[in-house]
Design a protein around this nucleic acid. Structure first.
Length: 492
RNA sequence: CGAGGUAUAGCGUAGUCCGGUUAGCGCACCUGCUUUGGGAGCAGGGGGCCGCAGGUUCGAAUCCUGCUACCUCGACCA
């Protein structure tokens, strides 16, 4: 299995196998017996917890309150917003009965226990939340409402893929209600910036901020903002979205308020989310052929210590004593440490195992080090080793963790930039899209051209970037004037 | 839902075309000894209704029919 992994490279056609091997070998998750549902193993879940805790504290500081709404949504709720139901109807899990019974054929669904109205397992919670907001909002004084929910959702996608597109996934979904359009729009962008900052600073993944075209928009939104990242095989992945919902849901659920002048108005809404897909992005952005590479800020174990045990095992006592001191010191500095002094595995096995799991720093300590007052420090990202004096090891590790965080972002950014090409003709476009990557090209703004490009090249417009230069140009196909370049890529 | 493919031990697989000993191998697991600074070696051991249900045959993992599940590709997508 591992040998197979080593024979693959991220650029291989078989990138999906490479990706799956890393996820399964690094103990993040495994293929499920139930279609596409992920089973997150403790290590995989630990990464999700890291993401969740950090993002949660950021959102709380920004003023959002956590809530939890029901898993089941009555079918009629979901149907109230026309575009919304159109977008989600093809991927809903539906509860129709509430009881089983014994029969001659074994356990069967009890036909007498049919629900009068079917319940949909939430694919997202806009409808059930707006049904409740109706009861909460009467006056402009009740606004804004800033809520966030950590939950699981179900989307019965045709083709599931570990972490990237699983039938069930974990996420946070924010739902806000505002008195004015301006405020709601500001909110949408504020959250987009929170996401960008989180993904770049913590996950060390560079992104492009942008706005979706009409074709790619969230079902029920007026505008969908997003952050897009580039994976190592040249495909793009949407890391998070922030939707400006306008008054669509307020109108669908009749949520109105009296403004300061006493006039009734519909409420303005936003919704936004990031999911456990982020774990997949982490894997695909930083991994190499030895396995996962985790950014220190999100690694469940930042440092692993491997003692070199000699044949009589007597030296372990001396090593333990010294290493315990090191661990205490590291922990005092807020660094998480795993000490693997198991005697049944050889050091080489442990090295390989923790590299596979992406632990940023490995410390190796044996009798030679004890004599010399040294310790061996190995970096996961560069796979380089260095002997360091044991007296300054805590400080060294502290600085090295910061360096690794910075370096892997820089590495990902370099990849991102070298794989972003600017093209001016459709031929250039077709040539470049074969190799993957982001392609910056002019587009006339019509769905027709967008669809034609999608059909002919399988590339879609990932977004209209917010901060790209605004030089004019001509559409690749129609030659119509275009005010700015947009980002094309193939996706997962 | 359309098109192709696969199903053999916890995982990965050989055997299937051309039916014939007790279904073989690697990893993992268990026992013992030796090892331990880059995935240890030797010796021994346990584990299989060959996806499910029928059929053909003296005899089926192998041939035939039906079913189910999964994988890849298309439409979908945080």
């Amino acid at each position: 299995m591992i040998k197979e992994l080593k024979n693959l490279t991220p650029k291989d056609v078989n990138f999906s196998q490479w990706y799956n091997d890393i996820i399964i070998n690094a103990d993040l998750a495994e293929n499920s017996d139930i279609r596409g549902c992920m089973i997150v193993k403790p290590y995989g879940y630990a990464i999700w917890e890291k993401i969740q805790k950090k993002l949660d504290s950021i959102l709380k500081k920004a003023g959002y309150l956590n809530v939890y709404f029901p898993l089941f949504i009555p079918k009629s709720f979901l149907s109230k917003e026309a575009d919304h139901i159109k977008g989600f109807s093809k991927e809903c899990a539906i509860v129709t009965h509430y009881r089983l019974k014994n029969s001659t054929k074994g356990i069967v669904i009890d036909p007498d226990a049919k629900l009068k109205e079917e319940l949909i397992v939430r694919p997202t919670s806009e409808t059930i939340i707006w049904n409740t907001y109706k009861k909460w909002i009467q006056s402009y004084r009740d606004l804004p409402i800033l809520m966030n929910q950590w939950a699981n959702v179900i989307r019965w996608e045709m083709r599931p893929r570990l972490f990237l597109r699983t039938t069930e996934f974990l996420w946070q979904e924010g739902h806000t209600a505002h008195a004015t359009k301006k405020e709601a729009l500001q909110e949408t962008l504020k959250v987009l910036n929170i996401y960008t900052n989180f993904v770049e600073k913590y996950m060390a993944i560079p992104v492009i901020k942008g706005i979706k075209t009409q074709n790619e928009r969230f079902a029920g939104a007026l505008d969908t903002y997003c952050i897009e990242a580039l994976m190592q095989d040249g495909k793009a992945l949407q890391m998070g979205t922030s939707h400006f919902l306008g008054q669509n849901f307020a109108k669908a659920f009749n949520v109105q308020f009296f403004n300061q002048k006493g006039i009734k108005e519909y409420v303005w809404a936003t919704s936004w989310g990031v999911s456990s897909r982020l774990i997949g992005a982490l894997v695909m952005t930083h991994s190499d052929n030895n396995g996962l590479i985790l950014p220190p800020k999100l690694a469940p174990q930042q440092v692993v210590i491997v003692p070199i045990i000699e044949k009589n095992k007597k030296n372990l006592i001396f090593l333990n004593e010294k290493i315990t001191n090191i661990i205490d010191d590291l922990k005092k500095s807020g660094i998480s440490v795993k000490y693997d002094n198991s005697e049944n595995k050889k050091p080489g096995w442990k090295f390989a195992k923790y590299e596979l799991k992406g632990v940023p720093i490995r410390l190796t300590f044996g009798m030679n080090d004890l004599k010399n007052g040294t310790i061996e420090v190995a970096r996961r990202d560069t796979l380089t080793k260095k002997m360091i004096s044991i007296n300054c090891i805590t400080n060294y590790v502290k600085i090295l963790l910061k360096d690794i965080q910075k370096d892997i972002f820089q590495k990902a950014l370099n990849y991102h930039l070298t794989n972003t090409t600017y093209v001016n003709t459709y031929d250039e476009f077709k040539n470049n899209i074969k190799n993957g990557g982001f392609i910056m090209a002019h587009w006339d703004g019509t769905s027709k051209t967008e669809k034609q490009i999608k059909e002919e090249t399988k590339a879609t417009i990932r977004c209209i970037p917010l901060y790209e230069d605004l030089t004019c140009g001509k559409d690749l196909i129609t030659g119509m004037t275009s005010k700015r370049r947009v980002v094309f890529a193939k996706t997962y």
